[in-house]
Simulated scan of single mutants.
Amino acid sequence: MEENNQAAAPTMQAAPEAKMKFCRHCGGKIPEDAVICTLCGRQVEEINQNNAAQPQIVIHNDNINTNTNTNTVNAGGRGREKNKWVALLLCLFLGFVGGHKFYEGKIGMGILYLFTAGLFGIGVLIDFITLLFKPNPYYV
């Protein structure tokens, strides 16, 4: 009976063992061509990038654009000069129809003030207080 079991049992041949190396971080055996340790997950060797050709990057920076602001009237880029007292009087007497906004050149806000009676009076009050604390002349 013993002879039958031995004859029936296949003999296991040892597979040729792959070349192994030791991880320098955990000391475990890993395959020789491994870049990352299969046990601890840390990088064991530098990734060989000699096979991959580096792309040639060419940068042509021929920007000759000179940025000049042509919107400002006065030198220094401050905008249009407005008199504080004129704007304050316009806000006081014509604020509900947007007179001070039209004076400042803010046509859209002037039309909004015109149709909403100066943002229902709240906008005129806020603008009046704001204009009081502006320097003379101020720039829009």
Rank of each mutant, 00 (worst) to 15 (best):
C23A: 07
P31S: 02
Q49C: 02
N51Q: 06
A34S: 15
C26W: 01
I36R: 15
C40R: 08
K29G: 07
A34Y: 04
Q49A: 06
V35E: 12
E46F: 11
Q49E: 11
E46T: 15
E45D: 15
E32A: 15
C23Y: 08
H25A: 04
E46G: 14
C23H: 07
L39D: 01
I36D: 02
R24D: 06
D33W: 00
C40A: 03
G27H: 04
G27S: 04
E46N: 14
A52F: 09
T38R: 03
V44M: 09
C23G: 10
Q49G: 08
I30N: 07
V44R: 10
Q49H: 13
H25Q: 07
I36V: 15
C40W: 05
T38V: 03
I30M: 14
R42D: 00
C26G: 07
N51W: 02
G41S: 14
A34Q: 12
A34R: 09
A52Y: 13
G41Y: 06
R24H: 12
G41Q: 13
I36Y: 15
C40I: 11
L39G: 05
D33M: 09
R24I: 09
E45M: 10
L39W: 04
C37R: 11
T38E: 02
N48T: 03
C40L: 05
I36L: 13
H25I: 12
A34K: 11
T38G: 01
K29S: 12
K29H: 08
I36W: 12
T38S: 02
I47W: 12
C26L: 06
A52Q: 12
I47F: 10
E46I: 14
T38H: 03
E45C: 03
G41D: 05
Q49F: 10
V44P: 03
I36S: 04
C26F: 02
A53R: 09
A53C: 00
A53S: 04
G28L: 01
G41F: 02
D33T: 11
N50M: 13
G27P: 06
P31R: 05
E46Q: 15
I47C: 01
R42C: 00
V44H: 13
N48D: 15
G28K: 14
C26N: 04
G28A: 13
I30C: 04
C23M: 05
L39Y: 10
R24P: 06
C40N: 10
I47Y: 11
V35S: 11
C37D: 02
R42E: 08
E45H: 13
G28Q: 15
G41L: 09
I47M: 09
E32L: 14
C23S: 09
N50A: 14
A53H: 01
E45A: 10
G27Y: 04
V44K: 03
N50G: 15
A52P: 01
G41I: 01
K29Y: 05
C37G: 05
N51I: 10
A52G: 00
N48A: 08
C26Q: 03
I47N: 11
N48H: 02
G28I: 00
A34H: 10
I30V: 15
E32N: 14
T38Y: 00
P31T: 00
K29N: 12
Q43H: 10
D33R: 02
